[in-house]
Design a protein around this nucleic acid. Structure first.
Length: 504
RNA sequence: GGCGCAUUCGUCUAGCGGCCUAGGACACCGCCCUCUCAAGGCGGAGAUCAGGGGUUCGAAUCCCCUAUGCGCUACCA
């Protein structure tokens, strides 16, 4: 695409865990760098002392680590590069591209208010300090006012720049105000620090959110004032909430850590990559390598995208199922939930690890933590019923608690009377006494029993399902009972009988 | 208010002048499989391509206008 070496950066400000949109920006930059064999740089834009949040840098690193987005340089901290910005400012002051402004924040606020009242079209700084006489400057200085440094924006003409996503964009310079470059506390604003760093760090492409598009002409003008060559720009479409407004806290989870304990990083990367980028008209699933191989700025879309949680859930479930298969088993065998002999396929140790960790977090404290051996048995039964790991404890708690809690009425379903239900359960109890608790034996014992009782298999199995799991929806009955074990199943069925007796 | 950007099924999107009576995915509905729920397979519904003018033999694709949405308009990034 370009002769120059690709060097891109992710430059968040340390105000907490990154927003989902910021992470998407990081991902795009990273993919672009890796695609071109360039460098991905992490830079912390901590020039606002008032908004700094403790631990934010760690949170940013943790988020990137989670998604396996690694950086080649940094993190650099702008707060540690103040001398660079001061030198830049001096250059601008010397070349009369910048000036000191002594206006108080109060005056500026009042000014803006009045402008709005008068419905003026231009509602930014009135440039009062732009052409101060030496006497006036002396007067302000003697009052000890700490000035800000503003950029002397050209008063007329136009500024056009090329955006790799949107094409040529033109602004009238008269629309651009004299932005603050250096604050009175000595820290630079984003505008200055951003372009100085991008220049000195030799950033080749600036890929950032769409909200920066309006600032870009100012940045271009700044590059010109410094006589620097600007990087190439690519503005990414914004990510919206379901109501199509900018994704914000109102929409619930917007920071990446809201997703870290629920979704697989691989699924998250895949999903995020498709938010504003696509390869073609059909490909949805991409491995990390495929993303790197195929990513290009040309295929970034221009319009904002609504964050679609349903699709993320689906994708997570897809990855869960796919990655739970052990590497050495071919896909055909692993796709089937249970083979003809009633033996569930193996799941990968990696999946068991993840499941154990998730259960450990989500199971109620009073429930005994399951052993690895036990989780290995459950895993194949629940993988394909999971969209997120979180649902394991939520939907399959009956595997772990002593007794599931449910309404006795559930036992009757739509068809059964209390009498037939009790009769069915007791018959099962008796038959199960000397039945081997493996899926095959259980089926051989119970299936004939249904017709013996004059019950439809569906009704009879449903009854047993409620009794043993407390739920109407669960993994296949016999596998489930086998995992639960004889003792627990008999006890639960007994409890069900008791419940029915008590309720009638 | 001004400026900028955007506008294809509910959502993510394909489409860059004829292949489009607009394709895929999620969600939704139905059927198959089946002991329930999933998963999987098959099928369905769903977009007068925001609206209106042009340009052209021909427009979702190019131009203009309008509408709507979003962003920016801070000594925040």
């Amino acid at each position: 695409m370009s002769e120059r070496t690709v060097r891109v950066r992710f430059a968040p400000s340390p105000t907490g865990y990154p927003h989902i949109g910021n992470i998407r920006t990081a991902l795009f930059n990273w993919l672009f760098a890796r695609h071109h064999g360039g460098a991905f740089i992490l830079r912390i834009e901590d020039t606002d002392q008032t908004r700094k949040v403790e631990g934010a840098v760690d949170a940013i690193k943790k988020s990137l680590d989670w998604l396996k987005i690694d950086w080649d340089e940094g993190p650099y901290f702008q707060s540690e590069r103040l001398q660079i910005y001061h030198r830049c400012i001096q250059r601008l002051l010397d070349s009369i591209h910048a000036y000191k402004c002594y206006c108080s924040p109060e005056r500026l606020a009042r000014m803006r208010e009045e402008m709005a009242e008068r419905k003026e079209s231009m509602r930014s700084y009135d440039r009062r300090c732009r052409d101060l006489t030496p006497e006036e400057i002396g007067r302000f200085e003697s009052q000890g006012i700490m000035p800000v440094i503003r950029f002397k924006m050209p008063l007329d003409g136009q500024t056009t720049f090329h955006d790799l996503v949107r094409g040529d964009i033109t602004f009238d310079n008269s629309e651009l105000d004299d932005i603050v470059l250096l604050k009175s506390d000595g820290y630079p604003t984003y505008h200055l620090a951003n372009i100085a760093d991008d220049h000195y760090m030799e950033i080749s492409h600036v890929m950032r959110g769409d909200e920066w598009l309006s600032s870009t002409p100012r940045h271009v003008l700044l590059y010109r004032a410094f006589d620097w060559e600007p990087p190439l720009f690519a503005h990414l479409p914004m990510i919206l909430g379901p109501d199509k407004s900018k994704l914000s806290k109102r929409h619930g989870a917007t920071s990446i850590d809201d997703y870290m304990d629920k979704y697989l990083p691989e699924a998250m990367v895949n999903f995020l990559a498709l938010l504003g980028w696509s390869l073609d008209d059909k490909t949805e699933i991409f491995s990390r390598e495929e993303l790197i191989q195929n990513f290009s700025i040309e295929r970034i879309s221009r319009s904002p995208a609504v964050f679609n949680r349903d699709k993320l859930d689906w994708m997570n479930g897809y990855y869960l199922r796919r990655d739970s298969r052990p590497q050495d088993i071919n896909n055909e065998a692993a796709t089937a939930p249970v083979d003809a002999e009633g033996i569930a396929p193996q799941v990968s140790t990696d999946f068991v690890d993840r499941l154990m960790e998730s259960l450990d977090n989500d199971l109620p404290p009073e429930v005994r933590r399951p052993t690895r051996e036990y989780v290995e048995q459950i895993a194949p039964l629940i993988v394909e019923r999971l969209k997120t790991l979180r649902e394991a404890a939520e939907n399959f708690g009956f595997f772990f608690v002593d007794e599931p809690i449910y309404e006795s009425g559930l036992l009757l379903g739509k068809q059964l009377t209390v009498e037939t239900a009790i009769r069915g359960l007791e018959a099962a109890l008796e038959r199960l006494q000397d039945t081997q608790f493996d899926a095959l034996s259980l089926e051989e014992a119970l299936r004939p029993l249904a017709s013996d009782l004059g019950l439809k298999t569906g009704d009879f199995f449903g009854l047993l399902r409620i009794a043993t799991t407390g739920r109407t929806a669960a993994p296949p009955l016999f596998e489930t009972m086998a995992v639960l074990g004889k003792e627990r199943c008999l006890k639960r069925i007994q409890t069900a009988v008791t419940k029915l007796r008590e309720s009638s």
